[in-house]
Computed example of a mutant assay.
Amino acid sequence: MEYRYLGKSGLMVSRLSLGGWVTYGGQVGPEVAQMCMKTAFDLGINFFDTAEVYSNGQCEIDMGVAIRKFGWKRSDLVISTKIFWGGKGPNDRGLSRKHIIEGTDASLKRLQLDYVDLIYAHRPDLDTPMEEIVRAFNHVINQGKAFYWGTSEWTAQQITEAHAVAQRLNLIAPLMEQPQYNMFHRDRVEKEYLPLYKTFGMGSTIWSPLASGLLSGKYNDGIPADSRLAIQDNAVMKRIRDGLETEDGQVKISKVIKLGAMASQLGCTTSQLALAWCLKNPNVSSVITGASKPSQIEENVKSLQVVPLLTEEIMLAIEDILLNKPAADYNYRSS
């Protein structure tokens, strides 16, 4: 395993990490979640990501059980959770000081941990003043319940505002952002956030590197019954399923087929190529992967061996397939 500093901090996170969205507490039971986490840990992955909303908190419970079961040293782990959707009550969602503090306490109880390393504002909250949000996350850090705080799917303007508030009040600013990033979803990471990397030294822990499995090639001929997209009671999965039936969805599948041919020439899978492409970006601190079986984690980790194969010529060939490079200067050579 290889490790990168998380933004400008001294914290090192594994370049590949394991997240529990949809899968743990939902798609698979606690025993499978435990074996997936153990496989990841044995392969050098130290960063595990969850959220209060994942499977209504069950993901945090299952991950916490695994951590205690295997007796891992706490300093060997980087655990993150995210706060925003905590329940149905009027104060159980959003980023009020009340919910940030109470939501953090509830997450720690489910995880059976004294603290998390990273805590995220899972989405921006336009109804809560930025000063309240920044002060609340600083309170959580000052209480020793988290070491760093960050954002997820915030705009560059919102992140800049949070930094301005923190600087004015001499408080800790957000260190990292957790955006979606993959071959089909690029603009925010490669264009909108560019000034943030340079100005604030922001790190990024990206999610959906395989576009919910689309970039694995598993949906080239339909949706397998045991796949993530087959989950019926998930609005995100339904939106992606519906999208595959559109003309744009079919164009994406045709691109995945071409990427699969390129992967074969490189001696890797389509998934490994897509993950390596994300890892190639020097502004990506860690790539959060999902897995419903240990063998998937073993295959994902092999993507690290593919990164050196992505020469400038190969990267240009990928661009010729994708045809979606953001209109901003981007230097792949600096990875």
Rank of each mutant, 00 (worst) to 15 (best):
M1T: 11
Y3A: 04
Y5F: 12
S9W: 00
S17M: 05
L18T: 05
L18H: 06
W21F: 15
V22Y: 09
T23V: 14
Y24Q: 11
Y24W: 12
V28I: 15
E31V: 14
A33W: 07
A33Q: 03
Q34D: 11
L43M: 13
G44S: 13
N46C: 08
N46P: 04
D49N: 15
A51E: 11
A51G: 07
E52H: 08
V53L: 10
V53K: 04
V53A: 13
S55C: 14
N56M: 06
G57R: 05
Q58S: 08
I61P: 00
M63S: 06
V65R: 12
A66T: 09
R68E: 12
K69E: 13
L77I: 12
V78M: 03
I79S: 05
K82Y: 09
G87W: 03
P90Y: 11
P90C: 07
D92T: 07
S96I: 14
R97K: 11
R97M: 12
I100D: 10
E102A: 14
T104Q: 05
D105G: 02
D105E: 13
R110G: 02
L111E: 01
L113N: 01
V116T: 12
V116N: 10
I119K: 00
A121P: 03
A121R: 05
D125K: 03
D125P: 06
L126S: 15
D127V: 07
M130V: 15
V134C: 04
R135W: 15
A136T: 11
I141N: 05
G144K: 12
W149N: 07
E153S: 13
W154N: 03
W154S: 10
T155M: 08
T160P: 00
T160A: 14
T160E: 12
T160F: 00
E161K: 14
A164W: 07
A164P: 00
Q167P: 00
L171M: 10
A173I: 06
L175F: 03
Q178K: 07
Q180C: 05
N182E: 00
M183H: 02
F184L: 15
H185Q: 10
E190F: 06
K191C: 09
E192N: 14
L196K: 14
G201K: 11
G201W: 08
G201N: 11
I206E: 08
S208G: 10
G213C: 12
L214G: 02
S216T: 14
G217M: 00
P224F: 12
P224V: 04
R228L: 13
D233G: 01
R239L: 06
I240N: 00
R241I: 03
L244D: 04
I253L: 14
I253C: 09
S254V: 00
S254D: 13
V256Y: 06
M262K: 15
M262V: 09
S264G: 10
S271D: 01
Q272I: 06
L273W: 05
W277Q: 03
C278G: 11
L279S: 06
L279V: 03
K280A: 05
K280R: 11
N281Q: 02
S285I: 03
S286L: 10
V287Y: 02
G290Q: 13
S295Q: 11
E298K: 11
Q305T: 08
P308Q: 06
P308H: 14
L310P: 05
E312N: 08
E313D: 15
I314A: 07
M315S: 02
I318A: 03
S334G: 00
S334L: 13
S334F: 10
S335R: 08
